[in-house]
Design a protein around this nucleic acid. Structure first.
Lengths: 144, 144
DNA sequence: TATTGTTATACTCTATAACTATA
DNA sequence: TATAGTTATAGAGTATAACAATA
């Protein structure tokens, strides 16, 4: 059905533009953070997926093992995550987020959401309701 | 009004998660592109804002003049943009996108939108309509 | 003298290749 | 011998400082 396909492509274009622009704007709101984006991403992944080995972290972040070695070392130096020996395999290690690391992530997210909340305050309650209603759909689109 | 503020913060959280995740997923769809993200961004800016000086490009991309010098040189080397002398100021230059550059951007966008269009094909017509209706609002939220 | 852009230099992030320790 | 991780090294991308050309 060509008509449907065309409509989807046009909508896809609009969604892409709007989402990318919003994401860029929100990402810019991180400028005062003491960590680089690389460090923030790794820290957030460790928080989300619990204690994991360097290899697992590399897999999640889609970076090479040497890269992950470096970012782990820097975050460990800042006491934002901890390294402990693997209980059953001497070759591996387990990295976990520290309370300071979790606090830093909370603060970082709070700062980014503050800007968005200010923007949301400028639209009408009806518009907010429509936005809220569409959230599950957006989440579903992103889930692989 | 504290109630309203709390509601906005919760909504802001949901929007941030959904938008960031979608953006990340769409960005990943660029993996086969021959250009780096830096080059793609500069090329897209030159296309969008017409011929501009290196200084103007640096301002738009929010990078330093030396960085812009490098990316311009690389893109000029690939014949994706052109450099011409400024008509009235010998210190400046004007960079503009070439037809090959515009074609590359078209192809890059087509590839990214193809994934999103496939995703959109999996939701119901009613949901698509709701999504379409919310697009102007998303665009408005992102505009400064 | 001020402005625009480039060159010189350094630091971060990333990768591949070589190496060490453990399984 | 295979696997997990680190170290060695190299290549982008970015910045600040110093410089050259033009206004």
């Amino acid at each position: 059905m060509p008509w449907q396909t065309l409509t989807d492509l046009a909508l896809a274009h609009d969604v892409r533009i709007a989402v990318m622009r919003l994401a860029r704007r929100m990402r810019a709101e991180r400028s005062e953070s003491p960590l680089t984006l690389t460090q923030l991403a790794a820290l957030a992944t460790v928080e989300r997926h619990g204690p994991l080995t360097p290899g697992e972290l590399a897999g999640h972040e889609r970076v090479s093992p040497p890269s992950v070695t470096k970012v782990i070392a820097s975050l460990e130096g800042l006491a934002l995550l901890t390294r402990t020996p693997h209980p059953s395999d001497g070759r591996q290690a387990l990295v976990a987020i520290s309370s300071a690391g979790a606090e830093l992530l909370r603060e970082d997210r709070r700062r980014r959401e503050a800007w968005l909340a200010r923007r949301l305050a400028t639209i009408t309650p009806t518009e907010r309701a429509a936005l809220r209603a569409i959230m599950p759909l957006l989440a579903r689109l992103a889930s692989e």
